[in-house]
Amino acid sequence: MQRFAFLFILLGFGSVALTYTDRQFILLMWAEDYQPVLGIVVGVLGVAMLVAGLVRDKKAAQAQPAPVARQAPQEPGR
């Protein structure tokens, strides 16, 4: 999910930056008339996906029980 988020961020905010040049990403050439608004929306969507993925991973890590530390048995008389 994080890879798609980075892709959306790159395409979204990159297309906003490219709006002011004569170039555009091939994937977003169809939306030239809707720039820079569409680029901002795609970039923000990517940021939201990234944050959601990080929160989900953090909750999954907290949900796992901590490993129980075992002590080795001691020899009698020591």
Rank of each mutant, 00 (worst) to 15 (best):
M1G: 12
F4Y: 13
A5M: 03
A5R: 07
A5Y: 02
F6G: 04
F6S: 02
L7D: 12
I9V: 13
I9Q: 09
I9M: 15
L10Y: 10
L10N: 09
L10A: 15
L10Q: 06
L11N: 08
L11M: 15
L11D: 12
L11T: 14
G12K: 15
G12C: 13
G12M: 15
G12E: 15
F13W: 11
G14A: 11
G14P: 12
G14L: 09
S15R: 12
V16H: 07
V16A: 09
V16K: 10
V16T: 09
A17L: 08
A17T: 09
A17P: 02
L18Q: 03
L18R: 04
T19G: 05
T19M: 05
Y20D: 02
Y20G: 06
T21F: 08
T21Y: 10
D22W: 13
D22G: 15
D22A: 12
Q24K: 02
Q24V: 05
Q24G: 06
Q24S: 08
I26T: 13
L27P: 11
L27Q: 08
L27H: 12
L28F: 11
M29S: 14
M29Q: 10
A31L: 15
A31D: 06
E32I: 12
E32K: 10
Y34S: 11
Y34M: 13
Q35D: 01
V37I: 11
L38Q: 03
L38S: 03
L38T: 13
G39A: 08
I40P: 07
I40F: 15
V41H: 00
V41R: 04
V42S: 00
V44G: 01
V44H: 00
V44D: 00
V44K: 01
V44L: 05
L45S: 11
G46W: 00
G46H: 02
G46Y: 00
V47Q: 01
V47Y: 00
M49I: 05
M49Y: 02
L50E: 01
L50H: 03
L50V: 00
A52I: 12
A52M: 12
G53T: 15
L54T: 04
L54G: 04
V55C: 02
V55A: 09
R56A: 13
R56G: 14
D57G: 03
D57R: 14
K58Y: 09
K59G: 03
K59T: 07
A60T: 11
A60S: 10
A61S: 11
A61E: 14
A61D: 14
Q62G: 09
Q62M: 06
Q62S: 04
Q62D: 11
A63I: 08
Q64W: 07
Q64T: 14
Q64C: 04
P65N: 01
A66H: 06
A66V: 13
P67H: 10
P67F: 07
P67E: 08
V68P: 00
A69Q: 08
A69E: 06
A69N: 02
R70Q: 09
R70F: 09
Q71E: 05
A72T: 13
P73L: 14
E75T: 11
E75Q: 08
E75K: 10
E75D: 05
P76H: 07
P76L: 09
G77C: 02
G77Q: 04
R78Q: 05
R78L: 07
R78D: 05
